[in-house]
C-alpha cells in the first residue's frame, strides 16, 4: 500500500484525499490518488462532474525576457496569443499566460517526469551567465496546486465560484482564464479529455485545502465527487 507519507514530496491535499478514502500509487517522486475504491464508477462520475488532484504531476513554468523564444528553441509549441494553450506531442500542454510567460503541464497519462523535467534540466544545464536571455524557471509544482474538474456539469459548477463565463460555447477548448475562483487567484485551462468537458485548475498551493472544500461543496448539487487519476486517464481513452 502506497501512502503520501512514503515520499518527501506530498500533495497539498494529501490529507483530504486520504480522508476521502483514496487508494494511492506512486508517480515519480510522490504518491497520487489513483482511485477512491471504484475507478469504473469514477469514470462515469468524471463524465458528469469529477474533481481530481493532479498536484503530484510534473509541471513547470518559464517567465521573463527570452523565455518564449528559448522554449520554442527547445521544440515547445508556444501559442501565438496569450491565454491560449497548445498541446505538445507527448500530450503535455504549453499554456501561454502572458507575452513573456508560459506554464507547461505534464500529461496526466504520462508515467515519468516528461517534458517539464526535461525543460528544467535543459535550462539548468546551460552555462551561467547566459549569453542570450532565456527567461527564468518558476517553481510551478510548489507554487500551485493542480486540480482537474471534468464533466458535463463542470461549467455550471464553476458558475457558483467564478465570475468568468466558462460555458463550453463561450470558452473554447484550450482557452485560459486567469481569474479568481472562490476568491483565490487561479488559472483555468480548458482541456477536454476524450470528448468530456474538462478544466485544469491551478491555484495557490497554500489555499489548496480551502479550495478543495469549496469545490466539493459547490459540486454537491450536481452529485459531483472526487475521482482518481485512473478515472482521468479513462476519460482520455474516450
Amino acid at each position: 500500500m502506497t501512502a503520501p507519507g512514503d515520499f518527501p514530496r506530498r500533495s497539498f491535499v494529501a490529507r483530504k484525499l486520504d480522508e476521502a478514502g483514496a487508494g494511492f500509487g506512486s508517480l515519480g517522486d510522490a504518491a497520487v490518488a489513483l482511485d477512491f475504491g471504484d475507478s469504473a464508477a469514477e469514470a462515469e462520475t468524471a463524465r458528469r462532474l469529477g474533481l481530481a488532484d493532479l498536484s503530484p504531476l510534473p509541471r513547470t513554468g518559464f517567465k521573463g525576457a527570452g523565455a518564449v523564444e528559448w522554449l520554442a528553441g527547445q521544440g515547445v509549441e508556444v501559442p501565438a496569443e496569450s491565454n491560449r494553450a497548445a498541446r505538445q506531442s507527448g500530450g503535455e500542454l504549453a499554456a501561454r499566460l502572458a507575452p513573456g510567460e508560459v506554464l507547461v503541464l505534464g500529461a496526466p497519462e504520462a508515467e515519468a517526469d516528461g517534458l517539464p523535467a526535461a525543460l528544467e534540466a535543459a535550462w539548468a544545464a546551460e552555462p551561467l551567465p547566459p549569453g542570450t536571455p532565456r527567461g527564468f524557471p518558476l517553481p510551478r509544482r510548489d507554487s500551485h496546486a493542480w486540480f482537474l474538474v471534468s464533466g458535463s456539469e463542470a461549467a455550471a459548477m464553476f458558475a457558483k465560484l467564478c465570475g468568468v463565463d466558462l460555458r463550453p460555447d463561450k470558452f473554447p477548448n484550450l482557452s485560459i482564464a486567469q481569474t479568481s475562483v472562490a476568491r483565490v487567484s487561479a488559472i483555468v485551462v480548458r482541456d477536454d479529455r476524450g470528448g468530456t468537458l474538462a478544466y485544469h485548475l491551478l491555484t495557490d498551493s497554500a489555499s489548496a485545502e480551502y479550495l478543495w472544500d469549496c469545490l466539493l461543496d459547490a459540486m454537491v448539487e450536481f452529485e459531483g465527487r472526487p475521482v482518481g487519476l485512473a478515472a482521468v486517464r479513462a476519460l482520455g481513452d474516450g
Binding site: S82, N83, A98, G163, V164, A177, Q178, T179, S180
Partner: peptide, 11 residues
Amino acid sequence: PLNGPRNISEF
C-alpha cells in the same frame, strides 16, 4: 489588455 473584459473586482 491581457485578460479581456472582467469584473472590476478583479482589479
